[in-house]
């Protein structure tokens, strides 16, 4: 669901995400509140910073494009264009394009370089993995598509692949095949899965 904010910022919300902002949006600053995942193309305005926060960390943006996911107290932002800043207490962590910043309660903000913008996959439909650990792959997919995947046993194996316009369940099944494991659907809405992988030798 695409929304335009009063300042011109384009937001694409993932199904189930909730975005709210005050009536004073774009007066001094642009503060938004997000629960879920959305893609922001923030209109450039150096004077009125775009803000999103959790109780501890604050995301400060001046003009850029990024994928933001807030799940309770976990904040994850993957930047596709421009750069943003993550602030926690006194520490400022810049997150540039093709980087992903993480904020968790009780920990410093961290930044990870990501070549592939997999966290944008729910929007772009493109998933790219290059020698990614299978556990990471599964976590990315689960986070991206708001699925719950529990992994029983098994060990990590390196995985590479490109998926365009793919059903996330199909991608999970593919991962299962490579690990010689089995993917089971646990609920009737196909939102909860269990992946059983054989143990490492």
């Amino acid at each position: 669901m695409a929304v335009s904010l009063p300042d011109g910022t384009e937001v694409l919300l993932q199904e189930g995400a909730v975005l709210s902002y005050g009536a004073d949006y774009n007066e001094v600053d642009r503060l938004i509140d997000l629960d879920g995942q959305a893609y922001f193309q923030v209109a450039k305005n150096a004077e009125r910073p775009f803000l999103a926060n959790t109780s501890e960390a604050e995301l400060r943006v001046t003009g850029t494009a990024f994928n933001l996911r807030i799940d309770g107290e976990e904040l994850e932002v993957e930047v596709s264009e421009g750069s943003i800043e993550l602030r926690r207490k006194d520490k400022v962590v810049p997150v540039k394009a093709h980087q992903c910043g993480f904020a968790s309660p009780g920990k410093d903000c961290t930044v990870l370089t990501v070549k592939d913008l997999n966290r944008h996959a729910w929007r772009t439909g493109v998933l790219r993995f290059e020698s990614a650990a299978s556990s990471e792959v599964i976590k990315t997919i689960a986070n991206n598509y708001d699925l719950e995947v529990s992994v029983a046993d098994g060990c990590d194996f390196p995985f590479s692949g490109v998926f365009s316009d793919s059903d996330p369940v199909a991608v999970l099944e593919t991962v299962a095949l490579y690990g010689q494991g089995v993917l089971e659907v646990m609920d009737k809405d196909a939102k909860v899965f269990r992946l059983s992988l054989p143990n490492c030798e």
Binding site: F159, S160, V162, F163
Partner: peptide
């Protein structure tokens, strides 16, 4: 071989494999 596969994926080919 891996490089050839990577180049194909960069061109958008939908393939997956285990590098190991």
């Amino acid at each position: 071989l891996e490089k050839a596969l990577i180049k194909l994926t960069e061109a958008g080919a939908p393939i997956s494999y285990r590098p190991d």
